[in-house]
C-alpha cells in the first residue's frame, strides 16, 4: 500500500469495527435470503403457474 493511500485511511475504533461487522452481516444475510426467496419462488411459479 502506498504512503498516499495510507494517509487517506483512518483507524476505526472498536465500536465502529463492531458496528460495521454487524451491518455487513445483516446485508449479507439479507442478500442471501433474497437469492433463496427468488430461487424457490421462481421454481414454484414455474411448477404451479400461481399468484
Amino acid at each position: 500500500m502506498s504512503a498516499v493511500m495510507e494517509q487517506d485511511r483512518v483507524p476505526l475504533t472498536e465500536a465502529q469495527k463492531k458496528a460495521r461487522r454487524s451491518r455487513s452481516l445483516a446485508i449479507g444475510f439479507g442478500l442471501a435470503a433474497l437469492v433463496v426467496i427468488f430461487y424457490i419462488a421462481t421454481i414454484i411459479k414455474f411448477v404451479h403457474h400461481t399468484m
Binding site: M5, D8, R9, V10, L12, Q16, A19, R20, S22, R23
Partner: peptide, 23 residues
C-alpha cells in the same frame, strides 16, 4: 482501517450504527 474521502475537518465521522439501529 477505512478509506475515507479527503476532508478539511479534523474529525472524520464514521458510523457506529448497528444492524439493530436500522431495524
Amino acid at each position: 482501517m477505512a478509506l475515507v474521502e479527503p476532508t478539511h475537518n479534523e474529525e472524520v465521522q464514521l458510523s457506529e450504527a448497528t444492524a439493530g439501529d436500522y431495524l
